[in-house]
Write a protein that binds this DNA or RNA. Structure first.
Lengths: 338, 338
DNA sequence: CTGTTAGCGCATTCAT
DNA sequence: ATGAATGCGCTAACAG
C-alpha cells in the first residue's frame, strides 16, 4: 500500500503493470478472460498496490453513464420520503447506482432549480415527488432519454411512469369504517390541494362519501395551511362546535396535518375518541402511543421507492413501453382513536 | 426553444453563436466582461435557444471539482440524520454543491463500500456519521485532500474536524433534574456502546453521577440490542421490579431506544410518571403528545449539519489549520414524564 | 491477445 | 479580446 497524494489514474496503473491502458481498461470492465493470465496478475497487483479506483467522472464522460440517480422530494422531513428513499437506496446499492437527494420544500421554483442541477450532473434517472409545476423541465429529461418516474404524486397530463397509492379506495375504506362506528358527521382536513394528486384524490373520494353519509349530506372539507396554527385551531373549533349533538370524526389527509390536529385537540382539551374520533394518512411507529392509539392509513412507502427504482432500471435497460402507473395498496391500521 | 435529442455541448453553442468554444467557456465562467458585448449577446442567445447546460462531468474531469458532497449516515430513519441533512443541504444549495446520501445501517462493511463509492464519484467533501471502523479509508480521503468532517460521532484517534454535542454536560444536567425530583434509582438504557462516542460519553457521565446519587451508589446500565424486543422487556421488567420501594426513572440514551422503552412500558401497564419516570435523548414534535408528555433532550441536529458543511467549505477554501472540534449545546425540553 | 488512436465536454494556456 | 491547441481519465474502435 503506497501513499499517493494525487489520485492515481489508469495510466499509472498501466505503466506500473507494464501494459497498455486499454488492457487495464479491459480488465476493469470484466474482460479479464480475454487477457493473458500473467498480465491479469500484474494488473491486479498494480491496482492493489497503487490503490487504484477508476474515476466515475471520466468513465461517465466517456460512456455517458454517471451511475447517479436523482431523488427529489417535497419534504425530506416527511416519514414517507425517508421510507421511500430507503427503498430506492436498496435497489440502487444492488446495481451500483448512487443517489443524489434534493428537497424542494414544496416550492416549484426550488424544484426547478434542483431538476436543473441534476441534469447538470448527468443523472441517469429521476425519481420525483413532484410539485406538479415543472412539466417543461421534465420534458427535457425525456428528450435526453433520462427516465423519470413520479412517486406518490401524479401529473395527469404528463406521460410518465408513476408509482402511487390507491388513494380513492383506501379513503373509501377508512370512511366506511368511520361511519360504521356511528359517526354522523365527519370532516376532512387537508393541506391546500393545489394540483397535488393524492390530496385531490382523497378529497374527491371524501366528498362523494361524505355527501352520502353525513347526517345533512354535506361534506365538510377544511383546506388549511399547516403553518398557520391559528387557522387550524379555528377550523377545528368550528367543526367541533357546530351541531353539538352529532358524533364527530376527523379524517386527516396526511401525517403532518394529522399531528397538528391532534396537538390542537389536546390543547383544546377534546378527548379522543369520546369527544371526537380521529384518523389519518401516514403511519409511524409512535402513533400507537398517542392518546388511545391513533388509527392511521399506512402507505407502502418503502415498496413505492423500490418499485420506482425498478421502473427506472427497466427503462435504462431499454424498455420503451407506454408509461405505466403502478398502484400499491395502502392499509388501515386500526387503533382506538375511532 | 429547440428540441434537442442529444445533450447539447459547448461546441454546438459556439457554432450557433459563431464564436469559439473558448469564448463560450469564458462566458460561462463569469468572464463576460472581458468579452465584446455583441458576442456576449450572441452567446447568451445561443445558450438560451439551445437550452445549453454545461456538463458537471466534463467540468469536473477538467478542473477536478465535482461539486458533490458525500453525506454518510448510520441510519437515515433517525430524525437526527434528517435534520442534519437539511442543515447540510441548506448550505450546499447556497454554494452550488449537491449531496450524495448514503446509509450504512451501522454496518462498518457497508460504510466502507459507501466510502469507496463516494471516492469513485470524486466527492469534494465528506460528512460522516461514523461507525468508527474505517480509519484507513478516511486516511485515503485525507491523502487525496478531500476534507472529512465527523458529525455526532467522534473518532478519537483520527485527526479530523468534528461536530458534536456536549453529551457529558447535558447528561449531567438531565440527571441533576431527575434526582432533584426525588427519584432515588435511575437507570440508563443504551444501545450497545461499541466504540460509538456519544453513547460512551453519555454512559460514562451517567455512571459517575448515578454512583453518587442512586440510593445504593450503584449505576444501573442496560446495554441492549433494540432489535430484540424480548431483551428490552426483560431489562425493563428487571429494573422496575427490583427494590420496589424506590422511586425509579429511566434515562434513554437515544430516540430509538426511548421509543421502544415507552412502548414497552405501555404494554407492561406501567404508568408515567407515577410508576416510573422517563426521559431521553432526541426530541421530536410528537413527544409532547405521548402520555403526559415526554421530557427529552433536544440536540441541535440541524445546526450540526450546517456547522459540518461550513467546516467543509472552509477546508475547501484552503484552511489547513489543526482539526477542530465544534461542540454545540443540547437542551432539556421539560415535559411531564418525570 | 494487445497496443495505438481518437474523442467524450470542457477549461486553460498560449498565441495572436 | 479571442481562437487553436492541449489534456483531464477513461473507453472503444481499429489495427496488428
Amino acid at each position: 500500500m503506497k501513499k499517493k497524494t494525487s489520485h492515481v489514474t489508469i495510466t499509472e496503473v498501466a505503466e506500473y503493470a507494464g501494459v497498455s491502458k486499454s488492457t487495464v481498461s479491459r480488465y476493469i470492465n470484466g474482460k479479464a478472460d480475454a487477457i493473458s493470465p500473467q498480465k491479469v496478475k500484474k494488473i491486479k497487483k498494480a491496482i492493489e498496490e497503487l490503490n487504484y479506483r477508476p474515476s466515475k467522472l471520466a468513465q461517465g464522460l466517456k460512456v455517458r453513464k454517471s451511475k447517479l440517480i436523482g431523488f427529489v422530494v417535497a419534504d425530506i422531513t416527511n416519514p414517507f420520503s425517508v421510507a421511500a428513499l430507503r427503498g430506492v437506496e436498496e435497489v440502487c446499492d444492488q446495481y451500483g447506482y448512487s443517489i443524489m437527494v434534493c428537497n424542494t420544500d414544496n416550492s416549484p421554483e426550488k424544484e426547478r432549480e434542483m431538476l436543473f442541477k441534476l441534469i447538470d450532473h448527468s443523472i441517469e434517472g429521476l425519481i420525483l415527488n413532484a410539485t406538479g409545476q415543472n412539466a417543461d423541465v421534465l420534458q427535457s429529461f425525456a428528450a435526453q432519454d433520462v427516465p423519470v418516474v413520479l412517486i406518490d404524486r401524479k401529473m395527469p397530463d404528463m406521460k410518465l411512469d408513476t408509482v402511487t397509492t390507491d388513494n380513492r379506495s383506501i379513503t373509501a375504506e377508512i370512511l366506511q369504517i368511520i361511519y360504521s362506528k356511528g359517526y354522523t358527521e365527519v370532516a376532512l382536513f387537508t393541506e391546500p390541494i393545489a394540483s397535488i394528486s393524492p390530496r385531490a384524490e382523497r378529497a374527491s373520494a371524501y366528498k362523494e362519501i361524505a355527501a352520502a353519509h353525513n347526517w345533512d349530506h354535506l361534506p365538510r372539507m377544511y383546506e388549511i395551511d399547516v403553518k398557520s396554527k391559528a387557522q387550524l385551531t379555528q377550523a377545528v373549533t368550528t367543526f367541533l362546535h357546530e351541531n353539538p349533538t352529532r358524533q364527530k370524526a376527523i379524517l386527516a389527509s396526511n401525517g403532518l396535518i394529522l399531528l397538528k390536529i391532534i396537538s390542537c385537540m389536546a390543547e383544546l382539551g377534546v378527548s379522543i375518541p369520546e369527544d371526537a374520533g380521529i384518523a389519518g394518512f401516514d403511519d409511524t411507529e409512535w402513533y400507537k402511543l398517542i392518546g388511545p392509539g391513533i388509527t392511521t392509513i399506512a402507505q407502502p412507502s418503502h415498496d413505492m421507492g423500490v418499485a420506482a427504482m425498478e421502473r427506472i432500471l427497466k427503462r435504462l435497460e431499454g424498455d420503451t413501453g407506454a408509461p405505466q402507473t403502478i398502484q400499491l395498496n395502502a392499509e388501515v391500521i386500526m387503533r382506538q382513536s375511532l
